[in-house]
């Protein structure tokens, strides 16, 4: 039986974290869960602990990339076979985590993305998010040779080979699209399956319209530079 860790990065998510953890216990009871509290100033930590989850508390806010990477490092060192990344705000369909994991365990991919665009989903993002994401998808597509439509989805599962890379190299903010390029440059393969995303249950989205331009420029620049970088893996058993 492969060991699976679900990583939940959480920054000020006291409204939604309990529901997500309860949903996980119902739909994915065989998997371990770790909440990475990214220096929240609300009660995220105590609520998650109260719900019986393992909590790793970052003493200062590192942003989504630093938080998720903490989870990757934990998964890598604790010998997990699979790590699943899932948001704390209730947008990701927890019930479909076993589908991600089973698809990954077939062994022909190192990263499985839960995609919003592949098939019938009701998810409708705002104009700026749509614009930014469609440009980004095209850029990523160009560099990794196609196959992925939802490059910014943060609902994904990785195997140990991908963990060995991501535990060492993971972008700081808006990490999802760039991570695809990093894995591609490391010779690993990504695929996606359709999932049904929900709209937010509480809290605030981390990407607003004013950030769209910065977001685009930063990620596109990072991806261009990545094409000229070498990525090493963490030493150890894959």
């Amino acid at each position: 039986m492969p060991r699976v860790l679900i990583i939940i990065p959480a920054y000020n998510e006291q409204e939604t974290i309990a529901a997500v953890l309860a949903s996980l216990r119902e739909h994915a009871p065989d998997y371990d869960v770790v909440v990475i509290d990214d220096g929240s100033r609300d009660n995220t930590q105590s609520i998650a602990r109260g719900a019986g989850a393992e909590v790793i508390r970052l003493p200062v806010n590192l942003g989504i990339g630093g938080a998720v990477q903490t989870g990757f490092k934990y998964a890598w060192r604790d010998g997990y076979d699979v790590a699943v990344q899932c948001d704390a705000d209730g947008q990701h369909p927890v019930a479909q985590i076993p589908e991600l994991v089973e698809r990954l365990l077939r062994g022909d991919a190192d990263l499985v993305i839960g995609s919003r665009y592949v098939a019938n989903t009701t998810y409708i993002p705002s104009f700026f998010r749509r614009l930014g994401k469609s440009i980004l998808s095209r850029v990523v597509d160009f560099f990794i040779g196609g196959g992925i439509t939802d490059t910014t989805s943060g609902f994904r599962a990785v195997n140990r080979r991908a963990l060995s890379v991501l535990a060492r190299h993971y972008p700081e903010d808006y990490p999802e699209a760039e991570a695809l390029v990093i894995l591609h440059r490391s010779g690993l393969k990504a695929i996606e399956i359709p999932v049904q995303m929900f709209s937010r249950q509480g809290g605030e989205s981390s990407i607003g319209a004013p950030h769209a331009v910065y977001y685009m420029a930063k990620v596109v620049l990072a991806i261009l530079i990545d094409m000229f970088r070498k990525f090493t893996r963490t030493p150890g058993d894959e």
């Binding site: 393992e54 909590v55 790793i56 508390r57 003493p59 630093g66 990477q69 903490t70 700081e172």
Partner: peptide, 13 residues
């Protein structure tokens, strides 16, 4: 700073 913060959090855990 990022690496130290992560190591500290993992260690505390």
């Amino acid at each position: 700073n990022r690496e130290l913060t992560q190591e500290l959090a993992l260690l505390a855990h």
